[in-house]
Nucleic acid binder design. Structure first.
Lengths: 247, 247
DNA sequence: ATACACCACTTGTTTAAACAAGTCAATCTG
DNA sequence: CAGATTGACTTGTTTAAACAAGTGGTGTAT
């Protein structure tokens, strides 16, 4: 249970939107009304609403109000993005997941690795390859580089479980930001070997640079997804100054 | 030139980060210092910083400060996402773009179209197919459904130019929110016919639901991209309550 | 009847202040 | 010397107030 007021208001409004208490296409109660209901300041209500805007639940327009634009997401296959992650999808749909460690080695970042990952040349790294399975089918081939000095005691056993639970709960690391790039690339021999690709001759590739609270990038991961189960959802809000982000 | 203070501060800080005035990996001046420099309130500085966080330029941590985590983006090929759009990329790299209208028809949303797009059954729609070319090469096949009642006078000539300039400047429509889904799908006959796909047997598909300030979805577009030039960038920030969005 | 001014409402921006909470180093205490 | 305490910093949350700006209806004057 989050204790910040704006998070509670956000969760309450979100729940009402999802369950249809506020009709789709209509205006939510005005900020003043919500202030009365939640007995808080206008800023706090506005903060909750602005997060709903970011998540694509509502839309504001000056002079009119806050409009409910909720549409339930399609619940087929694996959905990533701002919405939910690998393990969460599996838990929700009751599917079984497993992770297999293909290899775990140590190396030092050379020029090539540095260019690909963004680690400085000379950084000591773990090179970790894993396969994620869902319901027995291999669907993601992960290749990670991890800073040794952030997790000196990494073992295959740890890598087989949840790396993030280890980093957060065991090492007390706080993960903050993650920069992602999505591309589509031709399959490699490793893809063919570890994934069940059928006729596809490309994979969906998500490259991830993950930062901890120190501001140091401690992980670079390239996730190669079987196309048939890959889905990424996103929400773009038109900003004041910039006329971009829409084709 | 945007006139809001927080936008100016945001732009100033962003420019300093990109040009290296603030060293990467180090802390920015504290909020109090910036208040002095920009002679504004703390809230205004904080708003500018929070947008830099959202865009992946900096990272905050309580008790320590604001850390610069900027990394220049790779400037190869077509980059979309929160960063920049089709035409902007072309303008920046000096490439030439063109749009060809393949077909423009009117139709009414049946059950299938409604399920795919989210338009209510019975909505009168334009069905528009276009090909985007960059430097003479066809790289995106667009198929759009557009509400007739939002743009009754749409013609092939208009569709050949920038649809958004027409909607915004001619019709005074304000575009606010866009919900996107990225998937990878097998090529169709139309893909093969209109795009230069080479060996690839799949395309990167971006499905877009676009809303205006009335809260009505007026456009659904499916953009089918040649894989070799497709790139989507994103930035995920770990939020307080939710332990998701990272695999 | 049309056009205009006005008013009551909405969201958007900015300021000021207070307190909570995390970090880090210097200092005090055992 | 080791450990705890303090204090000066940082960012995080919340409140209150004022004004700007956009929307839509009402009423008046033409």
């Amino acid at each position: 249970m989050p204790r910040e007021k704006f998070t509670q208001i956000y969760a309450t409004l979100k729940e009402r939107i999802e369950s249809g208490v506020y009709p789709v296409g209509q205006l939510l109660p005005s900020e003043n009304t919500l202030i009365g209901e939640f007995s808080c300041s206008r800023n706090t209500v506005r903060r909750a609403i602005s997060e709903l805007v970011r998540d694509g639940y509502v839309q504001t327009s000056q002079g009119k109000g806050v409009c409910n634009i909720f549409q339930p997401i399609e619940r087929s296959s694996y959905t990533m993005g701002t919405i939910e992650s690998f393990r969460e999808t599996a838990r929700r749909t009751g599917q079984h997941t497993a992770t297999r460690v293909v290899s775990l080695e140590r190396c030092v970042a050379g020029v090539n690795i540095s260019l690909q990952t963004g680690f400085p040349v000379g950084t000591e790294l773990f090179s970790l390859s894993r396969v994620h399975e869902m319901d027995g089918k291999p669907i993601i081939l992960n290749h990670s580089y991890l800073r040794v000095d952030c997790m000196p005691d990494l073992t295959e056993e740890i890598a087989q479980g949840s790396l993030y639970r280890y980093l957060e709960e065991e090492l007390g690391m706080v993960i903050v930001t993650s920069k992602r790039t999505i591309t589509v690339e031709p399959v490699t021999g490793a893809d063919r070997k570890w994934l069940d690709l059928g006729e596809y001759n490309c994979v969906a590739v998500v490259s991830n640079q993950v930062y901890n609270s120190q501001g140091v990038m401690f992980e670079y991961t390239q996730s190669r997804h079987v196309p048939s189960i890959f889905r990424f959802q996103d929400n773009a809000v038109r900003r004041a100054g910039a006329r971009n982000s829409l084709v």
